[in-house]
Design a protein around this nucleic acid. Structure first.
Lengths: 122, 122
DNA sequence: CAAACCTTGACACGCCTCTGGTAAGGTTCA
DNA sequence: TGAACCTTACCAGAGGCGTGTCAAGGTTTG
């Protein structure tokens, strides 16, 4: 059998068995199960566990962050909504050509100005 | 003067003054300051506050998430690293026999398996 | 069969987030 | 000047995260 049990996987990836279950519950790494329900970690999962550790320590992020990034790529509505909101910052992204930026910015403004107008009192 | 104080801005955006300060500390919306240090919210900030509220309630996310998305677009290294990790997700097609899958995995992660190889026992 | 695994569920603890307060002190303006 | 704002800096409390541990019970295997 080319798969490790949770304790074995934990040992060689330097996580604890507890954390392996936690990572699974976070939807990050979901190993196969044996007939009796035992978790079975194959080479791919082991590698992913190692790189996950490197990822979170290198950038000092949490598993929740990684899960959110995962959600971001599976939920297009969310990705678009957040991107729009961040884009609306009064800072011009460097990778957008000036002409495109301007036209896009005008579109956006026309939509928002109707709502924003009422707020300018003193 | 075309700018609101924190209490005024809070009232019309349906946040609390406390949360406006919190949102600022989270790096999401940083209003101008008056000479004496008073926060001054202009139309752009007010609109951004409203859309922020809609964003977090619609998708049930936290300010931390929005801040993380912001970090994601300003830190290319982070974005690439997370994207790579998510891309490497092992989706094992059910119709592929185990032996083929294993070889495919080895091709894909050939250099990584050198590290993982020691683990395949049991 | 018994040891040594595995499973889920729960309690616990420290730290962070979100949100509301309050206190001590500076600013604005009638 | 005094009321009514504003500022920062704390305390507080519920809830989530990261982690360990323990209990009750199923599985595997010598």
């Amino acid at each position: 059998m080319d798969a490790l049990t949770i304790h074995e996987a934990a040992e060689i990836t330097d996580w604890s068995p507890r954390m392996l279950r936690y990572i699974e519950r976070a939807g990050l790494i979901e190993p196969q199960r044996s007939g009796a329900g035992y978790r079975l970690y194959g080479p791919a999962e082991l590698q992913r566990l190692r790189t996950l550790r490197e990822l979170v320590t290198r950038f000092d992020i949490g598993l929740g962050e990684v899960g959110f990034a995962q959600r971001l790529r599976s939920d297009a509505d969310l990705a678009v909504a957040i991107d729009d909101w961040l884009e609306a910052k009064p800072r011009r992204p460097q990778h957008v050509p000036a002409a495109d930026w301007l036209r896009w910015e005008q579109d956006k403004h026309s939509k928002l100005l109707a709502l924003a107008g009422a707020a300018t009192h003193a």
